[in-house]
């Protein structure tokens, strides 16, 4: 197994190898620590420490750092309020956690020699599945079997329903896939591209200055994408929550 899993250090894909720091099992589950686990905890620690330390003063007139925290909080609170409405308040901590985790994983991944947790489909897939399960449970909890009417659009002629209902069901189950692949693909593509241009810099000698300039520009773009994809993932979560809470289709 290990033999065919070897990837050269000069491969653009090498950055996505998470490795493992020894084998470790919990209740028979493979819980080996890896780069992925370390950076997950790092991102979460950064979020918790930043949020806690910046509002420690509880200043009435916020300083620079407290303003960042408040802006961050209000940004997500407004997003939830606008897309889900008043009933969304209960899910605000979940949405906030999701956004903060993804945003910080993406941003930490932009640091040299670091690793991007969200570049693995395993991670984004679990996050998307979590959202999918939560939304489905909320839907059935709130509306019972009536939630199934979500798949039957109003005002569609009966014969067409034969076609529309399966499409609706399929699109519902496609949600976690598109939700997770969007984030994973963006992160993987961005980091792979940076690495490829990085290899060009080495190979082109003096002319490597050209791809180097490109890398500088692309790094800026990737920082924007890091935040944008966290936002997209979060707003989609809000939209799905809204669908489940307000059964209007």
């Amino acid at each position: 197994m290990a033999a065919e899993r070897q990837i050269g250090h000069d491969s653009p894909m090498h950055q996505f190898v998470i490795g493992r720091f020894g084998e470790f099992h919990v209740f028979g589950l493979d819980a080996s620590l890896s780069k992925a686990a370390v950076f997950m905890f790092a991102a979460m620690a950064v979020v918790v420490l930043f949020l806690t330390l910046t509002v420690r003063g509880r200043a009435l007139v916020p300083g620079r750092w407290q303003a960042v925290t408040e802006l961050w909080y209000v940004f997500i609170a407004d997003m939830v309020k606008e897309t889900v409405g008043g009933e969304g308040r209960r899910y605000f901590p979940f949405v906030f956690s999701l956004f903060s985790f993804i945003a910080l994983c993406n941003l930490i991944g932009m640091l040299p020699y670091s690793y991007t947790v969200t570049s693995h489909i395993a991670v984004t897939g679990i996050l998307a599945l979590m959202v999918f399960l939560l939304v489905t449970v909320i839907g059935f909890q709130r509306h019972g079997a009536h939630f199934l009417s979500f798949f039957v659009p109003k005002g569609v002629p009966a014969p067409l329903l034969l076609l529309v209902v399966p499409i609706e069901v399929l699109s519902y189950f496609m949600r976690p896939i598109s939700h997770s692949v969007r984030l994973f693909a963006n992160m993987t593509a961005g980091h792979t591209m940076l690495k490829v241009f990085g290899l060009f810099v080495v190979q082109m000698g003096v002319f490597g200055i050209l791809p180097l300039a490109l890398i500088v520009a692309l790094t800026g773009l990737e920082v924007v994408i890091a935040l944008l994809q966290a936002y997209v993932f979060t707003i989609l979560t809000c939209l799905y929550l809204n669908d489940a809470i307000h059964l209007e289709h």
Binding site: I7, H120, I126
Partner: peptide
């Protein structure tokens, strides 16, 4: 490396643990 299946379970484990804590 994203499709190396043996890495899925450890990531799932730690993500669930860490995210729940978070």
């Amino acid at each position: 490396p994203q499709f190396w299946l043996e890495d899925f379970i450890p990531q799932l484990f730690w993500l669930v643990v860490a995210f729940a804590l978070f």
